[in-house]
């Protein structure tokens, strides 16, 4: 029992990342009808927003401390971060340590800008072209984006620690009445899960309860009619693209402490996220979220040693295997609608 709960918990954080990326992919697909292969790159850029902010906050300058000497007797040079100077050592230090959560605020304008620039500058010209062309051009864009990041940040993963308050683990088992030390779970993963739930709920609430969201949903159902009613649906869809980019970016920002960001993390997640979208059902938002968590948890179960003893290597292929089975038995995915991508 404990093992099962532990695996579910382990699957949640990866599942959250899948769900967030798949949600953004589905938003773009549902509104604009574009298959965005550059979405993984947006996730990666989000993670590098966290890296950038961490570096910016950590900027320091050298001052010479006359009171302390190094071993040669020269005055010691020490690096003093600007944050320490401006806010005092304690507050300054905690600002530096909290750079990842702060990067949420930092990344939203950046991701929104990238999203709008991408839609207006590139994707807009591909609405009338075949899906294969859309896949190819966004695939090219993904290569370009990740190479730019590689040029500036290098090819190695960059460790981006979470705030020290969240670095530890806690005993989830003791909390819900099992024996102590059976279910240990890191704080940050729990935070990642809660954060992604908030983002997902926010996106759904935005679509469900605001006038803007209502218009967007109407536009998803019948773009032409909404346009004929005198609503500038293109502008709203551009904003939805920006929101989807922000969702991917936020998923990336918060994922940075779990997995040190490197330039190809986007591609790694992209392939899986597409599988998630297809399993969930192309164009279905709840399907994307559901499939994201489901596949995350299934993957985590497949990594259990008991299961690996029976089916060696199953954890590597389980997601693809499920995707193949689902696509062949339920061609529209778990919650797919009729008439999406069936031409």
């Amino acid at each position: 029992m404990e093992a099962i709960i532990l695996q579910i918990l382990n699957g949640l954080d990866k599942g959250s990342a899948y769900a967030l990326i798949a949600l953004g992919l589905t938003l773009i697909f549902g509104t604009l009808g574009v298959v965005n292969f550059a979405h993984g790159a947006l996730f990666m850029i989000g993670a590098f927003c966290a890296v950038t902010l961490q570096r910016l906050l950590g900027l320091s300058h050298q001052i010479v401390d006359e009171t302390r000497k190094d071993f040669l007797g020269n005055p010691l040079k020490i690096d003093v971060p600007y944050m320490h100077e401006w806010f005092g050592p304690e507050i300054g230090q905690s600002i530096i340590e909290w750079s990842v959560p702060l990067a949420i605020l930092f990344s939203i304008p950046i991701m929104a800008f990238i999203g709008i620039a991408m839609e207006r500058g590139l994707v807009k010209h591909f609405y009338k072209r075949p899906h294969a062309d859309q896949i190819l051009v966004t695939f090219g864009l993904a290569i370009v984006l990740q190479e730019i990041i590689k040029y500036f940040y290098g090819a190695n993963p960059i460790p981006t620690p979470a705030p020290p308050a969240f670095t530890g683990s806690f005993d989830f088992g003791a909390l819900v009445g099992f024996d102590a030390n059976t279910i240990i779970y890191p704080y940050w993963r729990l935070i990642y899960f809660s954060f992604s739930m908030i983002v997902i709920a926010g996106v759904f609430a935005f679509l469900q309860f605001t006038t803007f969201g209502m218009v967007v949903r109407a536009g998803m159902a019948d773009r032409e009619t909404v346009g004929l009613l005198g609503i500038n649906i293109d502008k709203r869809f551009t904003i939805m693209f920006a929101i989807a980019a922000c969702v991917a970016g936020l998923a990336g920002v918060m994922y940075a402490p779990i997995n040190s960001p490197n330039y190809h993390m986007g591609m790694d997640f992209l392939v899986l996220s597409f599988v998630v979208v297809v399993v969930g059902g192309m164009g279905s938002l709840p399907g994307a979220v559901l499939a994201g968590f489901l596949l995350g948890i299934v993957e985590s179960f497949a990594s259990m040693t008991q299961i690996l003893d029976i089916f060696p290597g199953i954890n590597q292929i389980i997601i693809y295997l499920i995707a193949i089975i689902i696509l062949l038995t339920r061609p529209r995915g778990l919650m797919g609608r009729k008439g999406v991508m069936e031409e």
């Binding site: 599988v275 297809v278 292929i317 693809y320 696509l327 991508m341 069936e342």
Partner: peptide
């Protein structure tokens, strides 16, 4: 269409 692309991708990754 896109489903074919994803299926072939899934097989290759497997």
């Amino acid at each position: 269409g896109i489903y074919f692309s994803i299926l072939t991708l899934a097989f290759a990754q497997m």
